[in-house]
């Protein structure tokens, strides 16, 4: 076998690091029973990215109360408004967090709640519009102290 020189060794090493990092880069993948919740909510349709702004702290010191704000771009008229928004936390014992239902009377598709997160995980929001289209957004939250008192 041909001996590899220093430069080639580095290239190989680099390639290996890339490979091991790949699964982390693909964090769009939702794990556990969150996938089932999504399936039930969307009916198998693939939601598009965008229109939602999900506001969560990057690092939550206390997983018992993590402030979450969500805002969805929509005119909120009788013809075009946001109907339901499902919020999921894929690392909790139960993935479901809340399902918000808006009406044209809401004026704005905006809400804030406080949620529990068991550990560092992804929080996913999926919005269903009145015309049936779906949008999604997700954020990773690092949790220092878990909020499910295990």
């Amino acid at each position: 076998m041909k001996a590899i020189n220093r430069r080639q060794a580095f290239a190989l090493g680099g390639g290996f690091v890339m490979l091991t990092l790949m699964p982390m880069a693909a964090d769009a993948e939702v794990t556990g029973d969150a996938a089932k919740w999504i399936e039930k909510f969307t009916g198998g349709k693939q939601p598009a990215k965008g229109r939602i702004s999900l506001d969560l702290p990057e690092i939550a010191e206390n997983g018992n109360t993590v402030p979450l704000s969500i805002n969805i771009e929509s005119p909120m008229t009788a013809d075009s408004h946001v109907k339901d928004v499902m919020i999921l936390a894929d690392g909790n014992p139960n993935a479901g967090v809340a399902t918000l239902s808006f009406t044209p009377l809401s004026g704005k598709a905006e809400a804030s709640i406080r949620i529990r997160l068991a550990a560092t995980q992804n929080v996913v929001a999926i919005a269903k519009m009145s015309d049936g289209s779906l949008f999604t957004e997700q954020k990773t939250v690092k949790v220092t102290i878990g909020g499910c008192g295990g």
């Binding site: 139960n94 399902t99 009377l105 809400a111």
Partner: peptide, 9 residues
């Protein structure tokens, strides 16, 4: 407005 809440609230 209404919302269904889960234990994660």
């Amino acid at each position: 407005f209404s919302c269904a809440l889960e234990p994660a609230i």
